[in-house]
Design a binder for these strands. Sequence first.
DNA 1: CTAGATGTTAAGGT
DNA 2: CACCTTAACATCTA
Length: 261
Amino acid sequence: MPELPDVENFKQYIDATSLHHKISETEVHNTKILKGISKARLADTLNGTSLESCRRHGKYLLIKTSGDVWLVMHFGMTGSLNYAKQEKDLPEHSRLILNFENGSRLAYISMRLFGRIRVIGSMNAFIRQNKLGPDAADISLEDFEKTLHKSRAAVKTALMDQSRIAGLGNLYTDEILFEAHIPPNQKSQSLDAAQIKILYQKMEYVLKEATRRHAVPKNMPQTWLLPHRERNGRCPRCHNPFKTAKINGRTAYYCSSCQQE
DNA sequence: CTAGATGTTAAGGT
DNA sequence: CACCTTAACATCTA
């Protein structure tokens, strides 16, 4: 799941459910998800504090605690959150559970254990240290153009490079390029100003609409690529079968007739 | 049964 | 240095 629209939904979910409850107990069911902190230290850090506010940068969720540190979550390829008021059954693969004093709890779920949780002191330092570029939902057209023209790689590769632009992954770059009628393997540098502008506008549109639709690919408009992004899927515009290509180590889906240089 | 899956990181090569 | 490919991670599903 977790590209920018998914993580933005997680942010809204935390805001709606989990702020300002005192944490009574922190459970870690698999320490593989912890980065740079032990189970015991994490519990020490969180117990007795509460989550106060929540921000997102790229695919990272950063939650400020009353203990004046940030709890940082990354969701890997399969990750989500689940909040429940009562003693409900924990979802499969719950790896971190924050139990709140009021009886509710927040579970961090990571099936494949690719997600990571850490504690940091400063959000800006974290972004710097991890070399994250500006957030895709926040970058200016000028910076967008600059960063794409600096890259000699394919435009899909440049868009997915978290140090250039943070938040786009394999699925949404496919969608954005489809909407912009640009083939994924076109060189980023070769895009002219008009194409860059269209790409930028499509990026804004796709991210906003996908977030609004809760980041479920199958629930995106039927005119989009995503609901048809599967083997034997066909372009909703021209009905040609989608092509695939390995770009940046990932499978790109695109329409060779609608997306041409 | 096998291959591939929304992500990141490391290693090695051009 | 910029970029590419491959592999690894752990688990599930088509």
